[in-house]
Computed example of a mutant assay.
Amino acid sequence: MMKKITLICLLLFIAACSSKKDGNMIVQGKIKGLKKGTLYLQKMNDSILISVDSISILGDNTFKLTDNISDPELYFLTFKGSNAKERILFFGEEGVITINDQIKNFGFSPEISGSKNQAVLDKFNKINKQFLNQRLDFIQKDFEAKKSKDTKMSKQLEAEYQKLTRRRILFATNFALSNSNTEAAAYIGLTELYNANIKLLDTLNKSLSEKVKQSLYGKRFDDYVSQIKKSEEEN
């Protein structure tokens, strides 16, 4: 009798620790060092971060989470007690996506495979990080120039910073154009080209494949470009 009770309890425990959802996107993997806790699969819904699936982990650091997804979009993988900096941001899409990471420095350099859009975004971020590092250098140098009241150096740094900004915009635009058959291109347009001129934005918008244009980020990008056009016409 005790054996049966123990077996039933064990089965209930396993069921409680497993994702109960079925979906066309499966997110699986291993978080090294996570011995106990709850992992959450989350996404933005009307500017609110919501959880679409979760799994409790006790001893086994492997996980499997699912969601039904109609268009590729950004998801977050978090665990209970983590903060905004301790999240894994990834491009979700239909199919099986594998994410491996470790609890120490969670979200800093996860290994993600199975998402075509994530692969595109990884390539973009690798180069874009160089621009971000250069921007931080400019900020530090500008701070030092202003602190020492070196007006000449401040003006020189401002001119060089404007050139850097233009190079970054051109890089982001050309990268998105060369990957216009992916939803990541529309996402880059929305998040990285906010200070680009309308001609570049319109060129990218027109170059997106029909499939991408009908996607979540494709529609948002088209709305964004349309709003800028309307605003410029009114002015």
Rank of each mutant, 00 (worst) to 15 (best):
T203A: 11
I48F: 08
G23E: 05
L121C: 00
E144A: 09
F79I: 04
S154T: 07
L216M: 09
K32T: 03
L10Y: 10
M44W: 15
C17L: 04
C9G: 05
T151A: 08
I8L: 13
N45L: 13
K80H: 14
Y187Q: 06
L201A: 00
T6S: 14
C17A: 04
Q102K: 07
I169C: 02
Q134H: 10
R135A: 15
S207I: 03
E93M: 07
K64G: 00
Y161R: 14
D142A: 11
Q118S: 00
S70W: 13
E86F: 09
S113V: 07
N205Q: 06
T191S: 06
I99E: 09
D46H: 14
K35T: 13
Q102L: 01
I88K: 01
K163S: 08
Q227A: 10
I188H: 02
T191D: 14
F91V: 04
E144Y: 00
F138R: 08
G114S: 03
R87T: 11
P110I: 06
A186M: 13
Q227Y: 06
G23N: 03
I127F: 15
Q102R: 08
M2D: 05
M1W: 08
E192L: 02
A159L: 12
Y75K: 00
L208C: 04
Q118N: 06
L204Q: 01
I127S: 13
